[in-house]
Design a protein around this nucleic acid. Sequence first.
DNA 1: GGAATATATGTCAGAATGGACATAGACGCA
DNA 2: TGCGTCTATGTCCATTCTGACATATATTCC
Lengths: 110, 110
Amino acid sequence: MREAKRKRLVSKGWKIGSAKDFLGLSPEESAFIEMKLELAESLRTHRERQNLTQVELAKLVKSSQSRVAKMEAGDPTVSMDLLVRSLLALGASKRKVVKIISPAKRSSAT
Amino acid sequence: MREAKRKRLVSKGWKIGSAKDFLGLSPEESAFIEMKLELAESLRTHRERQNLTQVELAKLVKSSQSRVAKMEAGDPTVSMDLLVRSLLALGASKRKVVKIISPAKRSSAT
DNA sequence: GGAATATATGTCAGAATGGACATAGACGCA
DNA sequence: TGCGTCTATGTCCATTCTGACATATATTCC
């Protein structure tokens, strides 16, 4: 439980995009967390853009407000599966989901 | 449990790329399954390209041969998290993982 | 044929994740 | 101030996923 807690704190303490600097994590681990954080952030963006509340999104994906909050907060108890499913439920295309976790899009190319 | 079985059969019966045609699945559901199948296929490609056996990959990702086999078989009991983690462990960059599930072209993802 | 190696499939106990609920905080508004 | 709405966080119990194991099915080599 200590480990999970740490990861959560870590992911909340650092800004998205600097996940590479997480100390003590292997490159794969950071890459994975980075992806999840990007999905999380994007989920919030998508939801807000559609003027939905967490409660409404929860209903849409047959979950609960608290879990939606945790998804958006990058809580480590949330799986990538759930994040991706939710994004798809919000109407994001597969292509879009892909873009979300794609590396820093400075310009256009991917 | 009947449902899981069906999905597994479905995903094995159809070729990758035709997931859209899965009957009875919502677009989001098919998109999600499609992604997983693409990750699965790519995992096998990556592993074989590095001349690793399932046992060796299992050791690498701290799993078991049977689970690796299930990953590559697109078994529904395998999470996207595990698939992505494994690909990353095989040295695939985040960018690469992204490409794998990207719908772009008709070539086997690498 | 038999041994060795690689992969597939089923099962199960334990771990991780899920939804639901309670509750607290934050913000706006009358 | 209190009220309504939205979000955050913690906990509980159920469901799902995981690693491990057993076992079956190739395939190759002798």
